[in-house]
Design a protein around this nucleic acid. Structure first.
Lengths: 226, 226
DNA sequence: GAACGTATTTTTGCATACACAAAACAGCCT
DNA sequence: AGGCTGTTTTGTGTATGCAAAAATACGTTC
């Protein structure tokens, strides 16, 4: 059996990784505003490095959609309008819905019991209101569903999109009742899975994701972000 | 023979683009077998270039999933088993199904008439049995649907996945009756769209994609590919 | 004053050079 | 023989230099 997440193996963080993470953070937090030109030499100076790792970092950011490269014309921060973020959330919601539908029909009894265990374990976390722990659980919960689709490519895509959305975790929605509602929605999804009703699980998952997105939209609009 | 896999927006082709395309082709055609180590200096010599553009090409291939990079341990050709290719096709089918469902509910009358025009124009192409022309049309047809979702992020993702699958176009299924069937399936999808039945359009699109995948699977198994 | 063409500057794309980590190898020990 | 350890070797990660293409500044012409 392959474990699933194996690349936690970054012993010594590579330079371009540090630069990429730093830039990703600055873009996500809005420090670098949309459309801003990213000069390679300038960034190299800022990070005390050469242009080489900066270039590599920028290309990776481009692959993640955070920046846009124009051949021979430099790199600019991708403009992340609220509309685009909502598009991303909708896409993520649809993909999650797709995953849970396939997972419902394909998961093994072992995978099902594992998911139930995970879900049960989240109750005390909600009770305590531990946001970080819930975030970790939530990720594991959703990734367990991806895995249960028995489609590794789809699982990777789902993880990638989740990762891209993670960039906006600064609006982490640390609201008490959202934690409660989130778990209640998980509960409903679990029930549909238990009944083997993939379509219902799918609809509930979509609603679950869109609820989170709506909460984020409110946050975005309140903070005049974008 | 294998041209136009990228957008024609690049005036003068950059060196790393040429290298990337060449490598992508060699990987797709199986010239470079799965698991093979890709030495940067070696490739640089082969292309008469330096390591710099080779590195960039390899990173882009990694972003497209054709190779795998292990930090400080080089790059290897991703192992593309038939199972993985089928996973990719299933994912593509599900995403296409998702797109056509959303498009059915959201497309404007203008977009609808454009799609009808496209579909009508494909009839003489099928009659003539012009595979290249049908390929071009097919792409336009599907991309029109992506666009009609009015979700630009989703549209980009769909295009990206279609692009990744394009790597396996060597099994281009140049079979007369497949062309006919493909258009007939489009016809059925169009009808569901016309009736405003997104769910039915979705199911038919999924079937359409999976038919193509099944045809490919037969080809793969017949050719002992993998 | 505006439009155009040219010179200058800036910045990317590529080449080369170097440092250091990890595999490959050799010799030594048990 | 087999395993451990120090050394060599290979190859990646990073720095720097150079040339060409954009961007910009400038002067000329109308």
């Amino acid at each position: 059996m392959t474990d699933g997440l194996d690349n936690a193996a970054e012993d010594r963080e590579l330079l371009f990784d540090r630069i990429r993470n730093a830039l990703a953070d600055e873009i996500a937090t809005g420090k670098l505003e949309a459309g801003a030109a990213l000069d390679e030499q300038q960034l190299a100076d800022r990070f005390g490095a050469s242009r080489t790792p900066v270039r590599e970092a920028l290309r990776q950011l481009a692959a993640n959609g955070l920046v846009e490269v124009r051949a021979r014309r430099g790199v600019v921060v991708a403009r992340m309008t609220p509309e685009r973020i909502m598009d991303m959330f909708e896409t993520a919601a649809e993909i999650e819905a797709m995953c849970v539908r396939l997972a419902t029909y394909r998961m093994t009894p072992l995978e099902r019991s594992h998911l139930i265990e995970l879900h049960d374990a989240s109750e005390p976390i909600v009770k305590k209101g531990d946001f970080d722990a819930y975030d970790t659980f939530n990720r594991a919960f959703h990734e367990a569903i991806y895995h249960a689709t028995h489609n590794s490519f789809l699982a990777e895509e789902a993880i990638a999109i989740r990762h891209r959305l993670m960039a906006f975790r600064r609006a982490q929605l640390q609201q008490e009742e959202r934690l409660d509602r989130s778990r209640a929605e998980h509960e409903a999804i679990m029930q549909a899975i238990a009944e083997g009703d993939g379509e219902m699980a799918s609809r509930r998952m979509r609603a679950h994701m869109l609820n989170a997105a709506t909460a984020l939209r409110r946050f975005i609009e309140a903070n005049k972000f974008g």
